[in-house]
Design a protein around this nucleic acid. Structure first.
Lengths: 144, 144
DNA sequence: CTCGGTGCAAATGCTTTGCAATGTC
DNA sequence: GACATTGCAAAGCATTTGCACCGAG
């Protein structure tokens, strides 16, 4: 949750890729770090709009891509028609249980899955960058 | 690959859900069963159009949803902006390695992942229906 | 001062919807 | 005959793009 460290990482990433250091990019990073849980691009855009920080939708999308590229956030498609993001910085890699009824998303961490993934990648000589395991079904609340 | 059995299953599913038995739905099922690997809705629509079987796009989408509901096909979002489908009937549950460079999709089966999933669901009292593990990275061909 | 980034609005592309016509039950 | 399903075209919605302007390096 150290926002200064995240900013540093982002700055480093931008410089190394010859991207420019713009105020908009850091305003968006801050907004992202203040978000709990999952959010989507438009949600972020509207929230920033109402709090008086004006950045365009285009810039939000562009910056979210950069933040994903440098590993500060993760991007998912949970079977919906839009992408969702979440903070990855300082958090362990995890997976998701998605309730088809209420839409709730439950996170879980599991070392064995990570281990199996590594093995599968070695077997296939595949150079993994990201992975996502999504289990769709009905959560405890909904099937009772 | 037994198309008759698939048709039977589909018929059973349609009847049990009070859906009607229409020729379009079975034309689409056949077209799906003749497809190797992954395909998307528009691909299927265009292929059917060129082979003289006319069904509308709307019906293709509608029917693919039904086929997914009754478990004959699976639907995925591989980080693209459209859904992809594949035949599930008569095939073991499997997962995917997706190459970010060439777009190739490698399938793999792994019992341990299935076992861990089951455990996670039990722990969370979660009633799983489907799951997908997607590993994104660079395939053997591309990083050499 | 150059060229990458931004904002805006229009464009894109997948998917869904409205509605009249059709055909299953 | 009733009403779910179909086809078509139009609408929706998330995301991308074109372009003039701006500002980081």
């Amino acid at each position: 949750m150290d926002i200064e460290l995240a900013k540093e990482n982002f700055t480093k990433y931008l410089k190394s890729g010859n991207y420019r250091i713009t105020p908009e990019r850091f305003v968006i990073l801050e907004s992202v770090m203040n978000h709990d849980g999952h959010f989507d691009a438009d949600e972020l855009f509207l929230q920033m709009k109402t709090t008086g920080q004006k950045v365009s939708r285009a810039t939000v999308y562009n910056t979210l891509d950069l933040l994903q590229d440098c590993g500060l956030i993760s991007k998912y498609r949970f079977g919906e028609n839009h992408s969702r993001y979440e903070l990855a910085f300082g958090r362990p890699h995890h997976h998701h249980l998605i309730c088809l009824e209420c839409g709730d998303i439950i996170e879980f961490v599991n070392d064995r899955i990570e281990k199996v993934q590594k093995e599968v990648c070695e077997t296939n000589n595949f150079n993994a960058q990201t992975s996502t395991l999504q289990i769709f079904g009905i959560c405890a609340k909904c099937h009772k």
